[in-house]
Design a protein around this nucleic acid. Structure first.
Length: 409
DNA sequence: TCTGGGGTCCTAGGACCC
DNA sequence: TCTGGGGTCCTAGGACCC
C-alpha cells in the first residue's frame, strides 16, 4: 500500500446537545438533572444532562424508569426550533475554518482541515477556537476530536467527552488503540462485538491483527472493513455534498394500542400524507412502499410492495399500504404503524436544486434529523416549513380524532 | 407504568429471464 | 439417461447510527 498522505479531520460533537440548549435557554435548569423527551404519552429520554447521567439515566429509557433512577429529574419536551437554529448557526462557525465540512447530524460535524489547518495555527488551535466560539455564542460545551481519518476523529471526540479536546496523531494510533475495546469504534455495535468476542477478539489491537480470512469468513464483505478499523483505518470521505435520499418514512407509536381497522386506516392515511408531502417537498418519487407494524408485544415486521410507476402521491402510497394491510392477519393489537417510500428518484417534473444550495441542503438534512427525532405530527422540520404546515396542509377533515391527543402541547 | 423516530447498508432467498 | 448458471429484481429482516 502506498504511503498515505495523512489527512486532518476534526469532529465536533455537542455535549448533551438538546439538554445543554435547554439549560442555556432556561437558567433554572442549569446544574440540574434534566431529560429532553418527546411530547407524546409514550415517549423516551432523547438526551439527558450530565447531572442526570450520574444517576444512570440513559437515552432510550422511558420516563418512569428515568424517574425511578432519579426522582428529582426534570423532563423537558424537546423544541426543534431551538436545536435547528443552533445547528444552522454552528455551520457559520465551521465555515470560517474550512469549506469542506459535513453536517453529520444535528449535533455532530466533521471538518476536513487537511488543506487549511496551517492557516490557523494548526488543527488543535482551530479546535480550541471552535470550542470557544460555541461557548461564547451559545453557552454550551462541545468536544473536539482530531485524527487522520473520520473514524479516529470520531473516536477522539468520544474519548474526550465532555468538554474536551483530544487529538489522535498518526504516530499515536497504535498505542491509543492497543487496549481499546472494539465496541468503542464507530460501526461496531453490541452484536458484532459479541461475535468478535466469541473469536477471542476484544481489543482493537486484536481486531487489527486478526487474520483477514477469519474475518471475511465470519463477516463477509464487512470483515475487511473491520480489520482496517482495528488498525484505525477508515476510508469514508467527508461528504461535503449531501447524497440523495434512499428512503423517506414516518412511523409513530400510537397514543394507545389499536385494533379497529377504521382507526388503523386513519393513521395510515396520515402517515402516507406525511411521507408523500415530504417526498414532494424534497422532489423525490419512489416506487417501493413499505408498511411497518409493531404489535403490543413489540414484535415488529414490515411488508413492502412495488407500484408500477414512481410516485409521491399520498393516495397511491396510502392505497398500497392498505392493500398490504389487507394481506395481513393481525394477531394482536397494534402499537406502532409506519409507512416508508423507497427506490427513490429525483422527481423529473421538478428542477433539481442548484449547486450553490448544496450546503443549505445539508443543513436541511440535519434539521430533518431533529424532526425525525421528534417525528410526531405536530412537529415541524424548520421554521420556514412550519408556516405551510400551519396553513393546514393536512386536511383536518380526515385527521382521526385519536391523533389529536398526539398533537396536544 | 413499561420500552421513540428516521435513516443506511448488508444478507439471504425466491422469481424470472436468457 | 444427465443437469446450468449468471444476472436482475424483489421481499424480509437484521445491525448500526444519531
Amino acid at each position: 500500500m502506498a504511503a498515505v498522505t495523512s489527512k486532518t479531520i476534526l469532529c465536533v460533537d455537542m455535549d448533551a446537545f438538546f439538554a445543554s440548549v435547554e439549560q442555556q435557554t432556561n437558567p433554572k435548569l442549569r446544574g440540574k438533572p434534566i431529560a429532553v423527551i418527546g411530547s407524546g404519552g409514550r415517549t423516551v429520554v432523547t438526551t439527558r444532562s450530565y447531572e442526570a447521567r450520574k444517576y444512570g439515566v440513559k437515552t432510550g429509557m422511558n420516563v418512569y424508569e428515568a424517574k425511578r433512577l432519579c426522582p428529582h429529574i426534570i423532563f423537558v419536551i424537546g423544541d426543534n426550533e431551538k436545536y435547528t437554529h443552533t445547528c444552522r448557526e454552528l455551520t457559520k462557525i465551521y465555515s470560517q475554518f474550512t469549506p469542506d465540512f459535513e453536517i453529520y447530524s444535528v449535533d455532530e460535524a466533521f471538518l476536513d482541515l487537511t488543506t487549511t489547518h496551517h492557516l490557523f495555527g494548526g488543527s488543535e488551535s482551530i479546535g480550541k477556537s471552535i470550542k470557544q466560539a460555541i461557548k461564547d455564542k451559545f453557552g454550551i460545551n462541545c468536544t473536539v476530536g482530531i485524527g487522520p481519518d473520520i473514524l479516529l476523529a470520531k473516536l477522539a471526540s468520544d474519548l474526550g467527552k465532555p468538554d474536551g479536546i483530544k487529538w489522535i496523531k498518526p504516530e499515536d494510533v497504535e498505542s491509543d488503540l492497543k487496549d481499546l475495546p472494539v465496541k468503542e469504534l464507530w460501526g461496531i455495535g453490541s452484536k458484532i462485538a459479541d461475535r468478535l468476542a466469541l473469536l477471542g477478539i476484544k481489543t482493537c489491537e486484536e481486531l487489527g491483527r486478526a487474520p483477514s480470512s477469519l474475518l471475511r469468513n465470519k463477516f463477509g464483505i464487512y470483515g475487511e472493513t473491520l480489520k482496517a478499523m482495528g488498525m484505525g483505518i477508515c476510508n469514508r470521505p467527508i461528504q461535503t455534498k449531501p447524497e440523495d435520499a434512499k428512503s423517506i418514512g414516518h412511523s409513530m407509536t400510537l397514543p394507545k394500542d389499536i385494533w379497529e381497522r377504521k382507526e388503523i386506516k386513519a393513521y395510515l392515511l396520515m402517515l402516507s400524507e406525511m411521507v408523500g408531502r415530504r417526498a414532494r417537498k424534497h422532489r423525490y418519487m419512489g416506487r417501493t412502499i413499505a408498511l411497518v407494524i409493531r404489535y403490543t408485544d413489540f414484535e415488529t415486521f414490515s411488508k413492502q410492495g412495488t407500484v408500477s410507476d414512481f410516485t409521491n402521491d399520498t393516495h397511491v402510497i396510502y392505497e398500497k399500504a392498505l392493500k398490504m394491510l389487507d394481506g395481513i392477519k393481525l394477531k394482536d393489537k397494534i402499537r406502532l404503524l409506519g409507512v416508508c417510500l423507497s427506490s427513490l428518484i429525483n422527481d423529473p417534473h421538478q428542477i433539481p436544486l442548484v449547486e450553490e444550495e448544496r450546503k443549505r441542503k445539508s443543513i436541511l438534512q440535519a434539521m430533518d434529523y431533529v424532526n425525525d427525532k421528534y417525528g410526531e405530527f405536530k412537529l415541524t422540520w424548520g421554521s420556514y416549513i412550519m408556516q405551510e404546515r400551519d396553513a393546514g396542509v393536512i386536511s383536518p377533515s380526515w385527521k382521526p380524532s385519536g391523533v389529536k391527543s398526539v398533537n396536544v402541547k
